[in-house]
Amino acid sequence: MAGLLDRRLWVVTGKGGVGKSTVSAALALASARAGRRTLVCEVNTQERVSRFLGHPPVGPEVSRLEENLWAVDMRPQEAMREYALMTLRFEALYKAVFENRVIRYFLRFIPSLQELVLLGKVLWHVRETRADGQPAWDTVVLDAPATGHAISFLRVPQVLLDTVPPGPLHKEARAMRDLLVDPGLTAAVLVSLPEELPVNETLELAEALRGQVRVQPTAVVLNATSPLRFEEGELRTLAPVPGLSDAAREQHAGALRSREARARLESGVGVPVHEVPRLFSERFGRAQVEAVAGHLAALVGRWA
């Protein structure tokens, strides 16, 4: 497997609470370390990625975090404004239109328009070029939002293609959809946990990505796994000592769940599963992200 380094857009998806932002931060770090100009995009969040990497929040402007690594937190208001300005070209016109109550009302109810402009901004960065015509970014990491099903954000172009009649919005949606489904450009990384519900959701997400978004999942990251540590005989030895037995059985149950989750994901999604062992630390920060990046080296590919 070639790894992620031959793709430009790395979409990291998964439900809330599975460690999506951690994996996004780790992958962005790995990309930057491999010498690639890397932009990590968060969408209307609490800005975890920059915080995890030990930097102050970046806000809605693209900001440099460290060597080869930039970050941006995209917000619907700003993204909508940029989109409108690109379409309408003049600030005065923008104001006349967007500061009109009727228009604002309309825009709220055009389904998923907010998501569309946010995703549109991400994809604009993917297409952004420098003066010499080379792509401005070697890697764009998208920490996809987890509102409801993670799929709804990525499905936005398709939803719009199905919803809005031909016109400018339709054309925009088609261009975005085409970028997303280009397997030479886009990689989709699904983050999961070794528990029943998250694994079910990952399987559904993979199917929805293939069926509804027509994006092939590239890899699964199984986060917070536990190693098989105890043998059955050892667990029986510990059985009379409640405190120790409970601790050992819980560890063992976690290990079995990890193994089962891996097997279900491998057969169900049909892509490589990369494990990130559960980290034991009181606080979560830069050191932990570095550790996660180390575990994901094989997924990224070349490791500088």
């Binding site: 409108a84 379409t87 309408l88 016109l93 006349a96 239109v97 009109n100 009727v102 228009i103 309309f106 109810f109 055009i110 809005v164 009649p165 031909p166 016109g167 400018p168 919005l169 339709h170």
Partner: peptide
């Protein structure tokens, strides 16, 4: 005027259907 401008963004038919 505003509706014309808005339709440049969304297309006339989108507005009509909405």
């Amino acid at each position: 005027f505003v509706m014309k401008q808005l339709s440049r963004l969304t297309g006339t038919e989108t507005l009509q259907e909405l």
